[in-house]
Simulated scan of single mutants.
Amino acid sequence: MTKFDIEISEVGPRDGLQSISAIMSTEDKIAWIDALVAAGIPEIEVGSFVPATLLPQLADTHQLVEHAKQYKGLSIAVLVPNLRGAQNALKTSPTKMSIPLSVSETHSLRNVKRTHKQMLEEVANIAQFIKSLPVENRPKFEGGLATAFGCTIEGSVNEDSVVSLAVALMEAGCDEVGLSDTTGSGNPAQVKRLIKKVWAAVGKENLSGIHLHNTRGQGLANALAAIEVGITTVDSSMGGIGGCPAAPGASGNIVTEDLVFMLEAMGLRTGINFEKLFEAREILAKALPNEQLYGFTPNAGLPKGFKYAR
């Protein structure tokens, strides 16, 4: 796929679905993924390799990875909680594999039942396992710094701790790190400041993406702040579905449809077609009729005379 100004990583099939009780059928997920690809979404996080007993909503992730591999150029992302999950994921050869390391250790214990030390050991073991694979089967390995902007359990998070854990993740073998506002606590000034601090510690080339939640209505403002300082990949979720089961009160991700409108209206190319994006939303709405979908752009429509960025 063509490289555009900002890459949208659609996380709805993973982050969106893991936080709702309804189980979307594999058939509907496949139709949704197909529609997202048709809309021009360059990266899709199709699921997570966690035990089905914990997240039955994501039990078919391996099937979704295999299906998505038919699309040449599509970045297929998955999340893994530990080495075992990574080994299962690597059997399917995804493009990108992320592991969450919560800066809040309390959140880490609740989310993956591991301390920072234990998680870094998992990361090192995964990195070593990846190196044992043929080069063509090695995914990009990202360490996601969860609760980087605040925690609903511990409260404020020390920025120096975020930086030190970013360094530790790179030293343990990650190819890159990502910043996650898991609880929607961040603000634009904080976003800019923390990105610059992490860049200074690990290099700008090792932090290109950010994952934001809209819990307090700051999602798009935070995305814009990140883009203004140079972030090039932004996670979002169609309809704003999602959240974090381990973080009380953490509501959904920023809305893909609204994010794309903001970027295209600003003259930043995303490569995404709105007509087809809205068609993908209809598939999601029909598959999950009892779930509320958010977004101003789908409801208001595109303004008269709207033109895509060139």
Rank of each mutant, 00 (worst) to 15 (best):
A59Y: 06
F49S: 10
A146F: 12
G267V: 10
Q57L: 06
E105F: 05
V229F: 03
G243Q: 06
G203S: 09
T256F: 11
S236P: 04
R281E: 13
K304F: 07
R193A: 15
T106V: 07
I283Y: 08
G295D: 01
G230S: 01
E279S: 14
A223K: 12
L36N: 10
G209Q: 14
V163Q: 07
A287C: 10
D235Y: 07
P303R: 14
F261A: 11
Q18K: 03
A38P: 11
P94R: 05
P298H: 03
G178Q: 07
V123Y: 00
P289N: 13
M1L: 06
V78E: 02
M1C: 03
N82E: 02
F261W: 12
T95E: 10
I44F: 08
K307M: 11
A39L: 13
P134N: 08
I283L: 13
S185F: 14
F4I: 00
D60R: 07
G249I: 13
Q87I: 15
V229H: 02
V260M: 10
L55E: 03
E121D: 14
I33R: 13
K307W: 01
R193S: 15
L58D: 06
T152W: 01
L120H: 01
N88A: 15
Q190D: 07
A89L: 08
I44H: 09
Q128C: 00
